[in-house]
Write a protein that binds this DNA or RNA. Structure first.
Lengths: 339, 339
DNA sequence: GAAATCCGACGAACCGTTTCGCCACCGTCG
DNA sequence: CGACGGTGGCGAAACGGTTCGTCGGATTTC
């Protein structure tokens, strides 16, 4: 591949001049400028980002490490991140920690070696290595996404998980449900924990007890939710409604309901949280809280770029978005006899 | 951040020795070796990939550019690619051309600047810029994925689209359907074209004519499929079965069927092609052809790495995978009166 | 007309590695 | 005892750009 020296030789100028022309970083007389551009065209010259970055100490790379890339929710996040990052002139390097702390650790090392300028991180949970790195200074600009971990030096963008489950549960309660079950995520994740807490709070506000027999915790995965729901629905007594803590899980739950021979919403009402492409296809259409993913990701990248560019060194800033309840027809009212 | 020079100074050796220790590229006496490792640890030194890559002429980056990242199908591809690429020691840079030829062109330039060592490309179609680059030599190792374009110098990994639609259509025919409609993709994409051709061939084999009133072409998107299906199903005469050319489209079609007040499979049978996480949640469960995405991606990355490492310079190699028909209960038989 | 000003182009240092060639020192063998 | 082969470690040249300080010629200003 042609280098800047080849171009300089072909145009009979110095490499400094070629650089000036290519980067528009200094005025170059029209004559030379034309010669240089001509040479660039003839040689098909493209500056090496590698060399440029080495010199400039930049990489124009932003990394995103998600805890479960096979979850369509995070796939959407990656999609939005690609667009957001490109708009700022960066390229996106994608990593999947697959909920494994050691994989996350490996990734953090890799991100550092690649000199990525920033990192959007969906941490694997308490065991995350995000905070405890960089013995001496040189912290990698990082913004946590979705899940938080206890580190107030890091920026974070999250959804109000408490509110999400509170809204969904309140909706079910208002329809007259009192025996409400839950299919929720792991308690070591802020998302799993807060969504359960919001649900409990909503129940408590109406003096309803959460029946522990109706609560199942497991991975935020379709299969986990499927078997949890099967178990939950085939026991002697079962709830009249379910709160499902993620969209992917909702897919599994709906499948389980059908597979055990029940109908939604006639036999069991379902409300869920978060949103993946597949849930729109569900019949009945699911009552759920939706997350403004694109806005959240844009904000995350904005925070990140701000920290990179302005060298923002302050405390971690946290931006919390609000979920909105989207009512479908997966819930039935017990207040009046169903039609 | 600490550099190799800092380490060299701290350990009182030359940078060459540090490099030898860090890379295990030459024998270093135990004494020095220990001093170097000690210094590395104290300074928290990690070699700069930037500088290393510049010197080695490598980037340890593989790029993937997909035509529509918001399609869960490609999100799965990206997920699989991340794993495959990591297994070979590379990191994955993700791009989304959003079906726009000019975006793809921009991406190709960016991939080149970043010195990515290879590219997995889902081209935007005939207008793809993949082939016509690099005036002089220096071709970027590229493997086409899913869709092909007319360039026999490029490796390609695809699914047998013809067979997919042939199988699905034959299945519908065997159930007694003769008025079969199609919701399919754009004809300028090999996937859209071949899937329609396979369907036509299956019909022709049974002497059934394809009624053009029952065929709708559009983008491989959920909304496009939704409105196409609505239009198709609300005209005076309608087909008894539909072949839908993608999983994402199937989601839209199922929604449309419900929204126009029809039932699947009683009123209209549906068979589709390809597989996204959401379709498993559909009730009735969809009859479809599935793609071995993970295997396909692994093969694509293998071909790519082979070309990178061994500098494979030969003709483009094409690997075609076979889809398999998964029978659900979204199709009804017309041969006997339904129970 | 000489001095001061300006500015386009250039040379060279530098970014942080790897790697090649060389040197010095060791033990060994004649 | 001297020549010699082997080898651990070093110095310095790349890799391909950017950028700062400088130079010299043209223009302006007294």
């Amino acid at each position: 591949m042609a280098t800047i020296k080849d171009v300089a030789a072909a145009a009979k100028v110095s490499t400094a001049t070629v650089s000036a022309v290519v980067n528009d970083s200094a005025y170059v007389s029209p004559g030379l400028r034309a010669r240089v551009l001509q040479a660039v065209r003839e040689l098909g010259y493209a500056p090496s980002q590698l060399a440029r970055n080495l010199r400039r100490g930049r990489s124009e790379l932003i990394a995103i490490a998600v805890a479960d890339l096979s979850n369509p929710f995070y796939a959407r996040v990656v999609c939005a991140a690609e667009a957001a990052v490109a708009a700022w002139g960066y390229s996106l390097v994608v990593f999947n920690s697959d909920e494994k702390p050691e994989a996350e650790k490996r990734i953090l090392g890799r991100v550092r070696m690649l000199h990525c300028e920033g990192l959007v991180l969906v941490p694997v949970g308490e065991a995350s290595h995000a905070g405890r790195r960089d013995p001496e200074g040189g912290r990698l600009p990082t913004v946590l996404f979705g899940r938080v971990i206890d580190d107030d030096r890091l920026d974070a963008v999250t959804i109000d998980n408490f509110s999400a489950s509170y809204q969904a549960t309140s909706y079910l309660i208002d329809l007259g449900h009192t025996r409400i079950g839950a299919i929720t995520g792991p308690m070591h994740l802020s998302t799993g924990k807060q969504r359960l807490e919001g649900m409990e709070a909503a129940l408590r506000a109406k003096n309803i007890a959460l029946d522990s027999r109706f609560v199942r915790q497991g991975e935020f995965r379709e299969e986990a939710a499927y078997s949890a729901a099967r178990g939950l629905l085939t026991q002697a007594e079962r709830p009249t409604a379910l709160y499902v803590a993620s969209g992917l899980m909702a897919l599994g739950v709906m499948r389980a309901i059908a597979d055990v021979g029940l109908r939604c919403p006639e036999d069991v009402s379902v409300a869920s949280t978060d949103n993946i492409p597949g849930v729109r296809g569900l019949r009945p259409s699911l009552t759920r809280t939706e997350h403004p993913i694109v806005e959240m990701v844009n904000e995350a990248v904005r925070l990140l770029v701000d920290r990179i560019k302005a060298n923002h060194r302050g405390e971690g800033r946290t931006v919390v978005f609000q979920p909105s309840l989207v009512v479908g027809d997966s819930c039935v009212s017990l207040n009046r006899p169903p039609r």
